[in-house]
């Protein structure tokens, strides 16, 4: 049901530019207006999200500690798994964000011979996730060749590395292959694994399909459709210099690609994709475990009803006296 719903939405998103640009000629709408709107929604939406999180209080300091604390001088603390300083926290966050440290711990539990539990390392999700995120970053960065003139040297270097194996014509980018493979894996694991299929919502299938649509349409343009790249650069430069033009002769595949990207930008701030920003705010990861060293203040702390020693002694004075326990008041 959730999968079907996602597929229908994707089909509609592909059909819209296909029909409206291909047949109705709404080039300007799909080439200029929609991308501008999408970018605005993305920037404003994400900014609002992040600002909302940022202004929320963190009443308690509750890191999840995954290693030895810093205590006695002769016991070696685990500086990254259980950071006690800001530097350690930065290190932990970098490991988390750049290399998915926690996901790397993943194990698969199995009940063997009907009685023995085992926990085997399971790195597939980690590998697939890491492969997707890194290649996505590189692919996005590569696209700066369309938005910058002259093309910066770092973009060219990256392209050089990406096409290192010099296979095919146009030369195949490694990242194109990896990103499609990774997304396909991430998508199919949700369908094949019954447990994942059970927990998956439309909001889990949809972004994977959307990203696949973007990747495939991009690859199609580059390797098969051989879209008019000069025309595209003219359009993209027009967009960034705020003098939008829509040249003649850009194929409909490009408009599909651009529309799916726009859809992703619009969808992003209102979906689980905000994990990209949210991970930085996770209180179990971004706080130092220095609780007993540095007092943490709860901004909304309020006085509560307590049971004082005086009330306690008043209630139990007789028995305390009989037991010859020290008293405040005889």
């Amino acid at each position: 049901m959730n999968l079907f719903f996602s597929l229908v939405v994707i089909a509609v998103l592909i059909a819209l530019p296909w029909v409206l640009v291909g047949a109705a000629g709404l080039d300007y709408l799909f080439g200029v207006i929609v991308p501008y709107v999408a970018l605005a929604v993305f920037v404003v939406g994400l900014l609002m999200r992040v600002l909302q999180w940022a202004r929320l209080p963190v009443p308690f300091r509750t890191p999840t500690t995954c290693g030895q604390q810093k205590s006695l001088p002769w016991i070696k603390p685990s500086r990254l798994e259980n950071p006690h300083s800001t530097l350690g926290v930065i290190g932990r966050m970098l490991l988390e964000v750049l290399f998915f440290r926690s996901l790397f711990r993943n194990t698969r539990s199995q009940l063997r011979d009907g009685s023995r539990l085992t926990y085997l390392a399971d790195k597939w999700l980690w590998a697939g996730g890491l492969a997707f995120h890194w290649t996505f970053l590189i692919v996005v960065a590569r696209h700066f060749r369309f938005f910058l003139e002259p093309v910066p040297w770092c973009v060219s270097v990256m392209e050089g590395l990406d096409s290192f194996f010099q296979i095919g014509l146009p030369i195949i980018y490694l990242t194109d292959v990896i990103i499609i493979a990774a997304l396909t894996y991430l998508f199919f694991r949700r369908i094949v694994n019954p447990r994942l299929r059970y927990i998956s919502l439309a909001g889990d299938y949809f972004p994977l399909l959307l990203l696949l649509g973007i990747a495939v349409s991009g690859v199609w343009m580059r390797y098969f459709d051989k879209t008019d790249i000069v025309g595209i650069k003219e359009l993209s430069m027009g967009l960034v210099t705020l003098g939008p033009v829509v040249p003649e002769g850009i194929g409909v595949t490009f408009f599909i690609h651009l529309f799916l990207v726009s859809a992703l930008l619009i969808y992003f701030p209102f979906s689980k994709l905000v994990h990209a920003g949210g991970v930085f705010f996770s209180p179990t990861r971004n706080l130092a475990n220095n609780n007993r060293v540095k007092r943490h203040i709860n901004p909304w702390d309020y006085p509560v009803k307590v049971h004082t020693y005086e009330e306690y002694e008043d209630e139990f004075r007789d028995v305390m006296k009989a037991a010859e326990m020290p008293l405040e008041k005889e």
Binding site: R195, G278, F281, S282
Partner: peptide
């Protein structure tokens, strides 16, 4: 949701990757 950043973040960012699924002793 207004008093705990943790709650808001944890409500917002789960991607249901499933890594946690078989880590819980009650599930196992």
């Amino acid at each position: 949701l207004e008093k705990y950043r943790s709650l808001r973040i944890f409500m917002d960012i789960c991607v249901r990757c499933g890594a946690c699924a078989d880590k819980c002793h009650f599930f196992i």
